[in-house]
Design a protein around this nucleic acid. Structure first.
Length: 592
RNA sequence: GGGGUGGUAGCUCAGUUGGUUAGAGCGUCUGCCUGUCACGCAGAAGGUCGCGAGUUCGAGUCUCGUCCAUCCCGCCA
């Protein structure tokens, strides 16, 4: 029996044709004298009818069994047409049945709706069943379609895909790495590449000019909904390009991907938002701009306030910020408590608020406010009946973090009440630009690169490198979509002297360490490094948003759990003493 | 490393103030049924209440510990 068609391919136009289908039994409806089976393959579902001779054999079938059938395409009786299915006007009158495998009863329902509710550990243990669900099949295809679209785009733009090593050397400045012991060099280690960053810059020195790679990257950091230990990035680097060139390049890529995958026309160019504005208005460097609830700085209003908590914060160089969660005055005690807990976990002492109910301001702090302060609040925050305003008084970055997070939580509460909608298919892309090149690390008592040490400073700020490193902006940019950071990149430093100065004088990395870690790169740059820049763009995150989810586990075929385990294959595992010996490794297991 | 949520039948969940034999829907199994498409009807089986300790006359319920999943903070140059 050879398959002639896919399920869902057959329609009224195939009437009377003799066809063979193969796939999985989606459901069995046994009416005694007649049995209907929905046969499912990766393209869809078709109803197969068994009566007379094959009835007994068909009655033995269970859900998820794999069968092949032969039969004639026939029209269903008028009243029995299923308008909900593409193949709903016809059915296959089976004349042949081949059973390839009877299935055990699956441990959870393989429907979209049923499977979505199932505990994720069970789905991951039986990932091959989870992936059979139409939604997961669709996600795999969207990922394939998006990756192909990306490859076609960069090819058309003159980029060539170059593979760089997964086994690199350890670069402890960055993310924690997966170390790989060397058998041939006792006591020495490779590290799995956390990014092709250094190789792609070397490729620019090598004269490749336009490089890209759909690259697997590895980072030994804690996992999250949008972070796996191994993930895929669209890695790009080009010579003789500036920031505007990169923006246009990636806007073109995203326009094509959205068209190819969703048939949606993305408007370009994307808005640009300076880092300071992003922080001041949204409290994060990856704002979700699908809704407002923007932060307002009230430091001026409260610098001489009778409310000492606010006044003293401003006097100490901090700021007072607030935002109006319009319409959320009906927040419950429990929800308010949860918001407070979040604020406290971000360093707030509490979460001050003003509710407006029945024309009155209800608040533990409003008694301290003067009439002038109240008037200023009303005007600047557009306060009206049913609103609740949240405040944070702290250092600038802390106040931003507290309210940035509270803003997102408040938005969820408003969505839950039906007072606001955040559409998953509204695509608010933006470029966040003008990041500070350096930030001061209080623990290490030194400057650290905000992104990475290869980022070039903005030309007109370069003179400040010695006098005021914090004020130097980097030629860095982040691509943000609906509150998720999709990618980041920069124009790089291509002058070896400047790169050396950043390493040694600004970041205070000892010269011998610079030499052992980056010596080869600095040396390469002395042989004619072109000006260059690029971007690392998260494929998993992009595909997740294309699929309408925020968890990249839904778009990775075999993801790990938050404890970094593969529940299906059951990794990691201990290894034999022989293996360890060969690798010159001894393990020390901490006591339980 | 820290905080939140959850873990009760194969799945999803309910389980009141600590009190008799722990329930529902779906699924599974058996029987009936020739037009269903979430088929229907009748019946049945199915439980280490995550695990361990404690309090109590008595624990699914309270306390402590622990494991797992998930969300977040730290972390992710």
């Amino acid at each position: 029996m050879k398959r002639t068609h896919h399920c869902a391919q057959l329609t009224k136009s195939d009437l009377n044709a003799t066809v063979s289908l193969a796939g999985w039994v989606d459901s069995v409806r046994d009416h005694g004298g007649i049995i209907f089976i929905d046969l499912r393959d990766r393209e869809g579902v078709t109803q197969v009818k068994f009566d007379t001779n094959l009835r007994a054999e068909a009655a033995q079938l269970k859900s998820e069994s794999v069968i092949g059938i032969t039969g004639q395409v026939v029209l269903r009786p008028d009243a029995m047409m299923n308008k909900g299915l593409p193949s709903g006007e016809i059915e296959i009158d089976a004349t042949g049945l081949e059973v390839f495998n009877i299935s055990e009863t699956p441990p959870f329902p393989l429907t979209d709706a049923g499977g979505d509710k199932v505990n994720e550990d069970l789905r991951l243990t039986y990932r091959y069943l989870d992936l059979r669900r139409p939604k997961m099949q669709k996600n795999l295809r969207v990922r394939h379609r998006a990756a192909k679209s990306v490859r076609d785009y960069f090819d058309a733009q003159g980029f060539i895909e170059v593979e760089t090593p997964a086994l690199f050397k350890s670069t402890p400045e960055g993310a924690r790495e997966y170390l790989v012991p060397s058998r041939i060099h006792p006591g020495e280690f490779y590290a799995l590449s956390q990014s092709p960053q250094q190789f792609k810059q070397i490729l620019m020195v090598a004269g490749v000019e336009k490089y890209f790679q759909v690259a697997r990257c590895f980072r030994d950091e804690d996992l999250r909904a949008d972070r796996q230990m191994e993930f895929t990035q669209i890695d790009v680097e080009a010579s003789f390009i500036d920031r505007e060139g990169i923006y246009a390049l990636f806007e073109g890529m995203l326009k094509k991907v959205w068209k190819d995958v969703l048939n949606h026309d993305l408007p370009t160019p994307f808005p640009r938002l300076p880092y300071d504005d992003a922080m001041n208005r949204y409290g994060v460097d990856k704002p979700d701009t699908r809704f407002a609830l923007e932060l307002v700085d009230l430091s001026d209003t409260f610098k001489a306030s009778a409310f000492k908590v606010f006044a003293s914060t401003v006097a100490a160089g901090g700021c007072v910020k607030a935002f109006n969660a319009k319409g959320l005055a009906d927040i419950t005690q429990g929800e308010l408590g949860a918001l407070e807990d979040i604020a406290k976990s971000l360093g707030a002492k509490g979460l001050a608020f003003i509710k407006v109910e029945g024309g009155e301001w209800r608040s533990p702090i409003v008694k301290f406010f003067s009439e002038a302060e109240k008037a200023a609040l009303t005007a600047r925050l557009d306060i009206a009946e049913g609103d609740i305003v949240f405040f944070a008084a702290a250092t600038w970055d802390r106040a931003c973090a507290i309210l940035g997070r509270t803003r997102l939580e408040a938005a969820q509460l408003l969505v839950k009440r039906g007072k606001m909608t955040i559409r998953a298919d509204q695509w608010n892309f933006l470029w966040v630009v003008d990041f500070p090149l350096m930030s001061y690390d209080e623990e290490r008592k030194s400057y650290v690169a905000t992104h990475h040490p290869f980022t070039a400073p903005v030309a007109e700020d370069a003179a400040l490198l010695d006098s005021n490193p914090k004020a130097v902006r980097g030629q860095h940019y982040d691509a943000v979509l609906n509150g998720m950071e999709l990618g980041g990149g920069s124009i790089r430093i291509h002058q070896p002297a400047l790169q050396k100065k950043i390493f040694e004088e600004v970041l205070k990395i000892p010269a011998d360490v610079v030499e052992s870690r980056f010596g080869y790169m600095l040396k390469a740059f002395t042989f004619g490094a072109p000006p260059h820049g690029g971007m690392a763009f998260g494929l998993d995150r992009m595909v997740a948003l294309l699929c309408g989810t925020t968890s990249i586990r839904d778009v990775i075929a075999f993801p790990k759990t938050q404890k970094a385990q593969d529940l299906m294959a059951q990794s990691p595992t201990p290894v034999t003493a022989k293996q360890l010996k060969e690798l010159h490794i001894q393990t020390v297991i901490p006591p339980q």
